[in-house]
Computed example of a mutant assay.
Amino acid sequence: MPGLLHLDASARSTSFSRRLGARFADGWRAAHPGAPYVHRDLAADPVPFIDEAWTELCDELMRRRITDPHRYHEVVETPAQKAAWAVLAPLLDELLAADVVLVATPMYNFSVPAALKAWIDQVTFPRMSLAGTRFVVVCARGGTYLPGTPRAAVEHATSYLRDFFDGHFAVTDVDVVAAELVNSLVDPVLADRRSEHEASVASAEAEVDRLVAAFAAAAA
């Protein structure tokens, strides 16, 4: 039975990225009753940054040419490495067990939050393939960064995640859903674009529902 790993990265306890993520997770779980589901809130329970012991593990994996994540533990030797492994092992287990990984994230300062990047750094090792795992990214952005808009070139949140999953995990099957112009709710300069924001949220919710239905159909 397929399993879902759900990551939240927003610093806000109530946010549009969390709202879209919850919508997907709720729909997915309803369509897959009893299936494994893990929710990790990277903002409420931050993942530590990698340390020197982690880099030692990484170096040793390259030296021994170990690419199977289920064998990573073989290089753990020193007390510091054991401590690093104790942090990353449960994160890695959750990732490897998931058939679908849902990443719910805002875009902060043109990129992903540090909390999400810390998780990525912990679970990523050289030549590590997750081919066959599906990734869904739901994102909220303060302005608009759609293709063809003036600031499209500086959208380094969903574009980074797409490039990373493809370039490092060998995952090309990534679905991305974004809600735009969230700051129109608080920034007077963007107040006249609130209707665009509302339309963007409605479109994002419809796309989330479409994805949920597609996953349900594929599993039937």
Score class of each variant (00 low, 15 high):
22 A>N: 08
36 P>C: 08
114 A>Q: 06
118 A>W: 06
28 W>I: 02
45 D>P: 02
137 V>F: 01
91 L>A: 12
117 K>C: 10
130 L>A: 06
117 K>I: 10
54 W>A: 13
157 A>K: 01
30 A>Q: 11
126 P>S: 06
48 P>D: 15
81 Q>E: 15
97 A>Y: 07
131 A>S: 14
161 L>I: 08
104 A>K: 00
123 V>N: 05
60 E>S: 12
33 P>G: 03
112 V>P: 06
155 E>M: 03
136 V>K: 00
67 T>H: 09
20 L>V: 02
71 R>I: 04
55 T>R: 14
158 T>G: 01
57 L>A: 12
134 R>Y: 10
107 M>G: 11
67 T>C: 09
44 A>L: 05
115 A>R: 01
54 W>L: 06
30 A>Y: 01
65 R>V: 10
131 A>M: 05
33 P>Q: 05
51 D>G: 15
27 G>E: 07
64 R>V: 14
108 Y>E: 13
59 D>T: 07
113 P>Q: 07
106 P>A: 10
65 R>S: 15
44 A>M: 06
94 E>L: 01
31 A>H: 01
47 V>F: 08
136 V>Y: 01
46 P>E: 14
80 A>S: 11
24 F>H: 07
59 D>L: 12
85 W>Y: 09
118 A>H: 07
112 V>Q: 03
100 V>Y: 05
35 A>P: 06
71 R>V: 05
82 K>S: 13
150 P>A: 08
146 L>S: 14
125 F>Y: 15
152 A>N: 07
161 L>N: 08
101 V>Y: 07
31 A>F: 03
120 I>L: 14
147 P>S: 09
41 D>C: 07
50 I>K: 05
109 N>A: 13
63 R>E: 15
46 P>S: 13
